[in-house]
Design a protein around this nucleic acid. Structure first.
Ligand code: MN
Ligand code: MN
Ligand code: ZN
Ligand code: ZN
Lengths: 159, 159
DNA sequence: TTCTTATTCGCACGACTTGCTAATTAGGTT
DNA sequence: AACCTAATTAGCAAGTCGTGCGAATAAGAA
């Protein structure tokens, strides 16, 4: 995703208006590597702009996606995650707490799909599933003791 | 997923009952490479057993997943797809009609994630995005003419 | 056949996202 | 500075997908 300033120019050149809501969301998403959901972004936005609506967050994220400024990530059955990182990269998901981390992958060019001669391939996505160090520790401590789940974990599990 | 006969034995050995609904779903899923949604499976089941409920389809798919007999596939924002194929394989998605095809991938062992030393990786999934030959033809015909969309396309697009 | 308990099924409900629209506002025009 | 008008916002209804719940039913053992 471009910088808030660059986006401002892009918006104006497309006849779109530059509202305070949009400017705030540009800031919150620019360089954001947390892969937030619309709800979590809405929470952050509300802290700085009480009254902003969840509907506007969804609308802005959708228009940024249409403009090619960010991508959607759908993993598991929970909410869609939004990613302003347009570099060629992939993801690792902690199956315990649900966090998504960026990861560069060496070797994707060597991936050879077999048996789909009738498909024109445009893109490849790689998703690693694992457990992050924090969750690994939690597991070590409580072998059988259930430990408190973070909101992210709740979400992941409720899926 | 095991054969309906093998599943019957597995179910009994676990104190689960063998109902007509379950037996039908075992048949419909065994060797099924269509990656159906719960709804589409429900439609097929209803043809042979009018009155079976969608709730039962979901319940049976969930219990088969718990038993490790099938996996869930979440791609895009639509419904979860169910896959009885337990072999080490990956998927290709037609971004036009939404169909999912199995694909074996050479080179996954050589994939090297960079920058996640603090993760314990358990699994890797590769998803190719492309256009199937059927959709490719449709595109060629109607360069600018909208062509009728199949249910799968509708679903994919409505996302 | 009887009994116990798992299962089915329908409906309500929850999570997530979009459709709709009246009120508001950005930003160009006079 | 006041005005105009199309774009945007916000809130609520509605749609999709999946699950919780409980009364009725049925599998399978006794
Ligand atoms: Mn990313
Ligand atoms: Mn498959
Ligand atoms: Zn974790
Ligand atoms: Zn296709």
């Amino acid at each position: 995703m471009q910088t808030p300033t660059e986006l401002a120019a892009a918006y104006r050149s497309q006849g779109r208006k530059l509202t305070p809501q949009r400017q705030l969301l540009f800031q919150l998403m620019h360089g954001n590597d947390k892969h937030p959901t619309a709800e979590s972004l809405f929470a952050e936005a509300t802290a700085q702009m009480p009254g902003i609506s969840l509907r506007t967050v969804y609308q802005t994220l959708n228009e940024l996606a249409e403009m090619g400024e960010l991508q959607f990530i759908d993993i598991g059955g929970g909410a869609t995650r939004f990613d302003p990182n347009l570099d060629d990269h992939h993801h690792v998901v902690c199956v315990d707490c649900g966090q998504i981390r960026d990861v560069h992958v060496n070797g994707t060019a060597a991936l050879k799909p077999v048996g789909i001669e009738d498909f024109t391939i445009n893109d490849v996505g790689v998703v690693f599933q694992g457990v992050c160090s924090t969750c690994e520790k939690s597991r070590a401590k409580s072998h059988k003791t259930a430990h408190a789940k973070s909101p992210a974990q709740q979400a992941k599990i409720s899926k």
